[in-house]
Design a protein around this nucleic acid. Structure first.
Lengths: 207, 207
DNA sequence: TTCTTTTTGTATCGATTAGTATAAAAAGCT
DNA sequence: AGCTTTTTATACTAATCGATACAAAAAGAA
């Protein structure tokens, strides 16, 4: 019994056994929308299997269990709907990095097919499953660490004023971003989020 | 059968029947901590009754059902741990109002007995119960409306620059506040939150 | 005491939860 | 064909969910 990495079919040239009738990546996308909209424990297995259009044993065979499925969904969320974040970190100037993060967050509220808010923020903020909560918290922390390192580099390059603290600035930016996610989940429009982003940018140190 | 308002014992001078053996307000406080830490549907009735130190029928007799208990807890949360918000709105200058809101939020993370974060933010962000979710969203909206009205008054009084938009500023402030709640739930210290508050204040329009 | 009223504790309800046992179905290989 | 392997669908598990039925217990009133 070999554990097959999710989202990819067997690499063997000759396929053994009955082929699966569903696309694991498409199923993961559907599961993502369910978790995104209802949170980790708000999403029941019946919700998930119905949306993914597979039966329960297929889900367990392909993705492990609910918690592991959630982990795969988190990975896919970060490398999919949240991929702009990594690109934003690559912008030439720190000010541009932060601007892209703010407006990228505002832009997330404009897709009508995607649920409002952010899976990482609302997926497990308060949740009975401690492990799922920790997994989401770890990913929130990772994003902040990445931005902090980027701003520390900016400081070394003279891209930030001498009195600016990269760690505090990173914490501020991520705070605003997560607040925007909460507002979006509460029904805030993309226009409102953009205006919040513009105001939040006024706090950025003058260079 | 008369529905007895929660938190107050019978007003009749002569009490009929067996007196209840618990203090409803203390029980509500304990329930508040459970909801605060685990969210609406993360808090099971077994969690609640154990923390409240009452049995299930006592809970239902005194508070209705889980959803109504949550509503009473929300009221108590707003008039208790969140009472500083109403006082902040009464500050003389708009800048002071916002400052008190920011630092009041930072101060909420310092009580070691209380759960981290904000019940209103994390109680039901993503949750299966649509009614509980709407109830929390309504209270989030109410806070923003109150601040918006306060800032509109400030504008009329010349307490804000002519180019400042009270509605946008209110949205920005509540966005930061809710982001701080998320950060706090993720383990941010009061010191970190205070520094975020200071940076966020730099976005405030110069008067 | 006896009656009435309310709270209490226990034991349970049907529904739903996450997770599986089992066997039929569908493919390739020999 | 016959064999092997994997996925499929159905049906089921034990546990937990929110919510109650029921009767004993505890008070005042008559």
């Amino acid at each position: 019994m070999i554990y097959l990495p999710i989202g990819m079919k067997s690499e063997a040239t000759t396929q053994l056994g009955r082929p699966r009738a569903f696309d694991p990546e498409a199923a993961l996308d559907r599961a993502m929308h369910v978790f995104w909209g209802k949170g980790y424990e708000g999403a029941s297995l019946s919700n998930l299997t119905r949306a993914m259009r597979i039966n329960r044993p297929s889900l367990y065979a392909a993705f492990g269990n609910k918690e592991q499925l959630f982990g795969k969904v988190l990975d896919r969320y970060i490398s999919g709907p949240l991929a702009w974040f990594g690109k934003a970190l690559a912008a030439p100037k720190a000010r541009d990095v932060v601007e892209e993060i703010f407006f990228g967050t505002a832009r997330m509220g404009e897709s009508p097919s995607a649920p409002a808010g952010c899976l990482i923020v609302q997926g497990t903020l308060a949740c009975g499953s401690a492990s799922a909560r920790k997994e989401v918290a770890a990913r929130r922390e990772a994003a902040e660490v990445a931005l902090r390192r980027r701003l520390q580099r900016a400081k070394r390059e003279g891209d930030l004023p001498k009195n600016a603290d990269p760690a505090e600035l990173a914490h501020y930016v991520m705070t605003v971003v997560r607040g925007m996610a909460v507002q979006s989940a509460g029904g805030a429009s993309r226009g409102q989020l953009r205006r919040v982003a513009q105001i939040a940018l006024r706090a950025w140190p003058k260079g």
